[in-house]
Amino acid sequence: MGVRGMYDQELSRLKDDIFSMGEAVVEAFQEALHLLKHRDKEKMNEMVSRDATINKRELEIHDRATLMIARQQPVATDLRTTIVALKISSDLERVGDLAVDMVKATMRLNEEDYQIEIHELESMADVAVKMLNEALTAYQKQDLMRAQHIALLDDKVDKKYAQYIKELFTSSDKNNIGQATQLAFIGRYIERIADYATNLAEWIVYERNGKHFDLN
């Protein structure tokens, strides 16, 4: 073990925990998509209450990172790793919240059959899921190329979102305006999730080379 072996271990454990929190968040997002298609009320309630565990993990990561700053006084890469851990865990927690918002919007659709096509929404969400997974892998492997690629995927999501909203407005009428509104919200949440995935990529770049890049 090197001079700061214990500290290195703590840093690597912090990163592992963020990765695993990220996996839980991606799972929550995928579940929200599944529930959008197969509207199971019981499972929706379960999913909403499960968000508390993600929030708790974020706070645990914050407490540990704070303690590491106080006790180890990290500098340079160590400092950036710790700061990025704080930022990424917060962004992941927000993604978890948005997945819950999606489920709540789905709940407001009641049992109504879809009168508006949700295929575009699903395809947009697929890209967002890919972005999150890519961001987590880039974080774990410190892969800057992968992180920068995420920005391209975000452009794709933004285009799909703009297209979807346009279609919603043209295909909705007074009979389905309530459903269209909730779907517009869901579209917006997915678009925001993709933005958070891009934020993650920006933090990964910062952690690696200490420079801020706006990938959005």
Binding site: G2, V3, R4, Y7, P74, V75, A76, T77, D78
Partner: peptide, 9 residues
């Protein structure tokens, strides 16, 4: 420099 200031040697 990084190794020194972060206490690695």
């Amino acid at each position: 420099t990084e190794d020194y200031i972060s206490g690695r040697f």
